[in-house]
């Protein structure tokens, strides 16, 4: 299943909305969008993942990449991830630096 990625700005938040499956094949699309989002210079980058039904470690790599690309004072939020996806993020320990929220 392919991944659809959209990018928008809402006030001082850059919003990346993902839908589909995030794995080794599709993660490069997410990577490219992160690079664009990092250039926006907003204080928050919000990654909406409610439509992501599956995420492999390639998705974790993308989230780490996002942390590396944005300035230190930028907050990265992952919003709406289904339970197995948020569990994968926690297993990697990324919930210490990325804000996980239901909505």
């Amino acid at each position: 299943m392919p991944l659809s990625v959209s990018l928008s700005i809402e006030g001082d938040t850059t919003v990346i909305e993902l839908s589909g499956e995030l794995d080794a094949k599709t993660a490069p699309d997410f990577h490219r969008t992160i690079e664009k989002a990092a250039g926006h210079g907003t204080t928050t980058v919000e990654i909406r993942m409610a439509g992501v039904g599956y995420m492999a470690s390639a998705g974790l790599r993308s989230l780490v990449f996002a942390q590396q690309k944005v300035a230190d004072d930028v907050t990265i939020k992952v919003v709406g991830a289904i339970e197995p996806v948020s569990r994968t993020i926690r297993t990697a320990g990324l919930d210490r630096s990325i804000v996980l929220s239901d909505e």
């Binding site: 492999a56 470690s57 390639a58 974790l60 790599r61 780490v64 942390q67 590396q68 994968t88 297993t91 990697a92 320990g93 990324l94 210490r96 630096s97």
Partner: peptide
């Protein structure tokens, strides 16, 4: 295994895929 003390950008995510698989 994930190492909580190490900042994410310094971690090797590669081995983490296998950790995910085995757990």
């Amino acid at each position: 295994p994930p190492c909580p003390g190490v900042p994410p950008q310094d971690r090797r995510i590669g081995g983490l895929g296998i950790h995910l698989a085995l757990t």
